[in-house]
């Protein structure tokens, strides 16, 4: 038995250790300059690392060398905050349908070359490297993604019955974390799936009814103002969505939008 075979038999994890990868990363100093892809090498990457941990390893390397670390957004690293999001080899959040923080290096092979880019849409300007400004989503929410009720103690749950099917569909839509993968993946850079998830979430529940018409017209008007593209029902958004928000929400938004316009609702200017 050779030494390498012995070690792989003795400890199966050893065999997987030490992935060597070539990374091509979008580097852009600030919004005013033009960026470009820069190639880096990382070695000894564990398959159990998350994608962001792999980038942490790269950044430690860069800092040791006195280089500028790669800027990227992240927060909870549990797949629930929606802060992280990278275009990995041409797919939003990479080859698995999950968030970038929940993507693990076991999805890649030793020797792989990985292209990493920021979300690309004019309403999501690059701040630095891989970090983009997604406040356009906040402004869409501000345009109607809320219900106007006084806060206070939680109301008695049985006071407002909700059919189980509606509650389930509303909750499916409510799982949207606003990461922006839908916009990033859409060939039109449309934010339709995001807006549709918010409109569907509130529109299916009794608490969302008083503002239902105004909500949809104002949120759609705001996403147009932000400069997102128009939806042509291609379906890349839903396939990239880490929460699997369905195309059904888009149909529901359109249904509400046409109904609201017929009922005379007009966006606030």
């Amino acid at each position: 038995m050779t030494a390498s075979m012995q070690s792989s038999v003795g400890n199966p994890a050893d065999e997987k250790l030490g992935m060597n990868l070539t990374l091509r990363i979008w580097r852009q100093k600030d919004p005013s300059v033009k960026g470009k892809m820069v190639t880096y090498k990382v070695t000894d990457i564990s398959p159990d690392m998350s994608f962001l941990e792999m980038l942490d390893v790269l950044n430690e390397q860069l800092i040791m060398q006195g280089d500028d670390p790669v800027a990227f957004d992240h927060d909870c690293r549990e797949g629930i905050c929606g802060m992280c999001g990278l275009m990995i080899n041409g797919q939003a959040h990479g080859p698995q349908q999950t968030t970038t923080c929940q993507l693990h290096m076991r999805s890649f092979k030793d020797g792989d070359s990985i292209d990493i880019e920021p979300w690309r849409a004019s309403p999501f300007p690059v701040i630095k490297d891989l970090a983009v400004d997604r406040r356009a989503f906040d402004r869409i929410i501000q345009a109607g993604g809320y219900i106007s009720v006084p806060t206070g103690t939680a109301p008695e749950a049985h006071a407002t019955p909700v059919p189980k099917a509606d509650a389930d569909a509303a909750f499916d839509a409510a799982t949207c974390i606003g990461c922006g993968a839908c916009v990033a993946a859409c060939p039109n850079a449309s934010s339709m799936l995001f807006t549709a998830a918010k409109v569907t979430h509130l529109g299916l529940l009794p608490q969302g009814q008083p503002e239902r018409d105004d909500r949809v017209v104002n949120m759609v008007a705001q996403q147009d103002r932000e400069g997102f593209g128009g939806c042509t029902n291609i379906g890349e958004c839903s396939a990239a969505c880490p929460k699997g928000i369905s195309m059904e929400t888009i149909s529901r938004l359109n249904h509400d939008l046409l109904g609201a316009l017929r009922a005379g609702a007009r966006p606030k200017s």
Binding site: G90, G230, I234, E236
Partner: peptide, 25 residues
């Protein structure tokens, strides 16, 4: 819609992979 889409993504991806789109779309 075509113009709107072009305005919405002036800078293209270096690498972009289609996952769900049909040839028809």
């Amino acid at each position: 819609l075509w113009r709107q889409a072009r305005r919405a993504r002036p800078e293209r991806y270096v690498t972009k992979k289609a996952v769900a789109q049909s040839y028809a779309s």
